[in-house]
Amino acid sequence: MTTFISHQAEQLSALLSERLGVHAGVGFAGKLAKAGRRLPRWARRDGAVIVTAMQWETHPMLSRQIDHDRVARAVKNLTRHLGGLDASKRRKNKILDLIASIAFVVCVTVGLILGIMIWRDLI
């Protein structure tokens, strides 16, 4: 059972690199920490369950206390969530958000300039 959790954590680590673009960090725990707020709260909690199980699996007495059903559920949830993400769609949305924020700043700046010009009777 010990290689089971580590093997699945390696697969999840590859998915984090592939789908979220998290290349920093060593192993699943490091990549999960670097992913941070890009993952929803429930996914971070599930990731913490897996990291704890990975730490416990090396200890002979603690390895008996691992809740394998909970770990399997956490792995399944994370795999489903990360499998549904699309890297190109994420990049496209990031670019569109940047363009929208730039357009908003330009509109506010033009509005302020026009407001000041009207206030000073220049127009």
Rank of each mutant, 00 (worst) to 15 (best):
Thr2Trp: 06
Trp119Met: 10
Gly111Phe: 01
Thr2Ala: 08
Phe4Gly: 05
Val26His: 14
Ala103Pro: 02
Val106Thr: 09
Arg90Glu: 04
Ala43His: 08
Met117Phe: 07
Gly115His: 06
Gly36Gln: 07
Trp42Cys: 08
Val75Pro: 04
Gln11Phe: 10
His7Asn: 07
Ile99Asp: 09
Lys76Arg: 12
Phe104Cys: 05
Glu10His: 11
Ala53Tyr: 01
Lys92Asp: 15
Leu62Thr: 13
Leu85Asn: 09
Ser13Lys: 08
Ile50Gln: 01
Thr2Cys: 02
Leu78Ala: 05
Val110Phe: 15
Val22Lys: 02
Thr3Met: 10
Phe28Asn: 02
Ile123Ala: 12
Arg90Asn: 10
Ala9Gly: 04
Asn77Thr: 06
Ser101Ala: 13
Pro40Ile: 05
Val26Phe: 08
Asp46Gln: 05
Ala29Leu: 05
Thr2Lys: 13
Val71Met: 11
Ser17Asp: 09
Ser101Trp: 09
Arg37Lys: 13
Arg120Tyr: 05
Arg80Leu: 05
Arg91Trp: 02
Arg64Trp: 10
Ala103Leu: 08
Gly111Met: 04
Ile5His: 03
Arg64Asp: 13
Ser63Lys: 15
Asn93Cys: 05
Ile66Lys: 10
Trp56Ile: 01
Gly47Gln: 07
Ala35Trp: 00
Asp86Gln: 01
Gly83Phe: 02
Leu16Pro: 03
Arg44Val: 06
Glu57Lys: 10
Gly84Thr: 13
Gln65Thr: 11
Lys31Ile: 13
Cys107Lys: 12
Thr109Ser: 15
Thr2Arg: 12
His68Phe: 06
Leu12Trp: 00
Asp69Trp: 02
His68Ser: 10
Ile5Leu: 13
Asn77His: 11
Ala29Trp: 03
Ser88Lys: 07
Ala87Lys: 12
Ile123Gly: 15
Leu112Gln: 03
Lys89Ile: 00
Arg64Met: 08
Asp67Tyr: 04
Gln55Glu: 12
Ala103Cys: 03
Arg80Gln: 06
Arg37Glu: 15
Leu114Ile: 00
His81Glu: 08
Ala87Phe: 08
Arg73Asp: 09
His68Ala: 13
Arg41Gln: 12
Leu16Trp: 05
Val26Thr: 14
Val105Met: 10
Val22Tyr: 02
Ser88Val: 07
Trp56Gln: 11
Gln65His: 11
Phe104Asn: 00
Arg37Met: 13
Ser17Phe: 05
Lys89Ala: 06
Lys94Trp: 04
Gly27Lys: 02
Ala103Lys: 11
Leu15Pro: 00
Gly47Tyr: 06
Asp69Phe: 03
Asp86Leu: 01
Thr58Asp: 14
Asp46Phe: 00
Ala35Ile: 03
Trp42Arg: 14
Lys34Met: 14
Lys89Ser: 03
Trp56Met: 11
Ala14Met: 14
Gln11Arg: 11
Gly36Asp: 13
Ala35Asn: 02
Ala33Gln: 13
Ser17Arg: 09
Gln65Ser: 14
Leu114Phe: 02
Leu39Cys: 08
Pro40Cys: 12
Val108Phe: 14
Val110Glu: 08
Cys107Pro: 00
Leu98His: 04
Trp119Gly: 03
Leu39Asp: 13
Gly83Pro: 06
Gly111Gln: 03
Ala87Asp: 08
Gln65Val: 06
Arg41Val: 15
